[in-house]
Design a protein around this nucleic acid. Structure first.
Length: 431
RNA sequence: GUGGGUAUAGUUCAGUGGUAGAGCGCCAGAUUGUGGCUCUGGAAGUCGUGGGUUCGAGCCCCACUACUCACCCCA
């Protein structure tokens, strides 16, 4: 138990962290280009916030939250999603009083859901997400979708599919829900047990059922899209025009309803096919009533969340050449090897001199044989090894060995950093 | 919550009742001041846990635990 990672969590090991950073860099840059600024909110919030936003009947709130009482008897919950916390901060800090729309993003924010882990599903996962406040127009929805899509395709992912739907608003949804419920009541004997139950609690959710039998029966079910009010219909039509303008193909999928209750109008998902099935990498939508519902002014908003582990998982299915990642190199430009322990101090000084010159420099910290130091330097991928022996130190020089060409030159200790700097390709120094 | 699969060295895995193994990795030597390749040697295992069958169990049986995959839902 002691050396066992908790179920549903993952370590990011040194071998993978570079890739992760590269993915994050793309997300950050795309958000920046779209005018979004970073926001960071706490890992935990008051439980009530999630209950009020995601909805008391949602799966997330009902059975998946990490909730506990802190020492002050406050009910605290590790965030299962980020929108609620961002909305809370938006209201609490009075950001609505500033210029709107306000555009924010969060990156690698940890999220917690207590559920059975499996491929692409963790108890702690991380999300990149973007939220836009005070923008009622569909161009904002389209901008978010386009940015999310851009992130995925920029990373080299192919076949990312966009599915969109509108689930209406408080003006038109209740009437539709009743209509749908009436229809479902005529199918009670053929629908699965879950669906019969959902007919009463959350009829929209029935549309989402994966049971083929249910899907068959739902073919002729009334569609929210046919019963949208003028405002919602116009918004949806406008969204399609903006997506067309961005040349983003999409499929209208009436079965997308989303698991969180706060959505209005636009909902969407970005999915990719995997050998084991379709994986949703990104999901989001509009939430025009949420800010008000949590106690803020009436301000419309729209946003999405993207699962970082899922993105990495999809990238793993690509060949290394197809992954468009700029992974920073950790290989040293130079490894300082020394013949004995006494010389380690000279080696230390030389290593620092290299670093001052902006070179990635490392040295032996294990008092190993020269041969072992070379072996280690090779494993690290060092471009050069600087060799310090008694002779060299006495003469005030150092040998620089090019590990690739095996060419060795002897230069003065003082000029070594400059010499190497001129020989190391620039990109090698930046990472 | 329901149903599959797996559990042996750091790691990936072989081992169908009779001495605990291999590849990779790690350390060292061959080469006493020089890496990758090669060769040689070395360290490293409560065979998930507990019970049972047997002269004898890593292997067969039972239970438990952990992990994992799938369903549901989601990122």
């Amino acid at each position: 138990m002691l050396t066992r990672i908790p179920k549903g969590t993952k370590d990011v090991l040194p071998a993978e962290s570079g890739r992760l950073q590269a993915v994050e860099a793309v997300m950050r840059e795309k958000a920046r280009l779209a005018g979004y600024q970073e926001i960071r909110t706490p890992v935990f919030e008051h439980t009530e916030l999630f209950a009020r936003s995601a909805g008391e009947t949602s799966d997330v709130v009902r059975k998946e939250m990490y909730t506990f009482l802190d020492k002050g008897d406050r009910s605290i919950t590790l965030k299962p999603e980020s929108t609620a916390g961002v909305v809370r901060a938006f209201i609490e800090s009075g950001l609505y009083a500033q210029a709107l729309p306000l555009k924010v993003y969060y990156l690698s924010a940890p999220h917690f859901r207590y559920e059975a882990p499996q491929a692409g599903r963790l108890r702690e996962h991380h999300q990149f997400g973007m939220e836009c406040f005070g923008a009622p127009e569909a161009s904002a929805d389209a901008e978010l979708i386009q940015t999310a899509m851009d992130v995925l395709t920029s990373l080299g992912l192919k076949g990312v599919a966009l599915r969109i739907n509108s689930i209406g608003c408080p003006d038109c949804r209740p009437a539709y829900q009743q209509k749908l419920r009436d229809y479902l009541h005529t199918k009670t004997d053929v629908l699965c047990k879950d669906c019969v139950e959902r007919t009463e609690t959350n009829p929209l959710r029935v549309l989402d059922c994966k049971n083929p039998e249910c899907q068959k029966e739902l073919r002729d079910a009334p569609r929210m899209l046919d019963d949208l009010c003028d405002s919602c219909r116009e918004h949806f039509e406008a969204l399609k025009r903006f997506l067309d303008a961005a040349e983003i193909p999409y499929a209208v999928d009436p079965s997308i309803v989303r698991g969180l209750d706060y959505y209005t109008k636009t909902v969407f998902e970005l999915t990719t096919d995997t050998p084991t099935g379709t994986l949703t990498a990104c999901g989001g939508g509009r939430y025009d009533k949420l800010v008000e519902q949590i106690g803020g002014p009436s301000i419309p908003a729209v946003g999405f969340g993207m699962g970082i582990e899922r993105v990495l998982m999809l990238l793993d299915q690509l060949s290394p050449e197809d992954q468009k990642l700029n992974v920073p190199s950790s290989a040293p430009d130079v490894f300082v090897a020394s013949l004995n322990r006494v010389l380690a101090v000279n080696a230390f000084e030389l290593m620092l001199a290299f670093r001052h010159a902006g070179l990635k420099a490392d040295m032996d910290h294990a008092a190993r044989s020269l041969k072992a130091q070379f072996k280690y330097a090779d494993k690290l991928g060092a471009a050069y090894v600087a060799i310090l022996g008694d002779d060299e130190v006495q003469k005030g020089v150092v040998k620089l060995r090019d590990m690739r060409t095996k060419e060795e030159i002897e230069v003065s200790l003082a000029s070594a950093p400059e010499t190497l700097n001129s020989r190391i390709p620039k990109h090698g120094k930046e990472a």
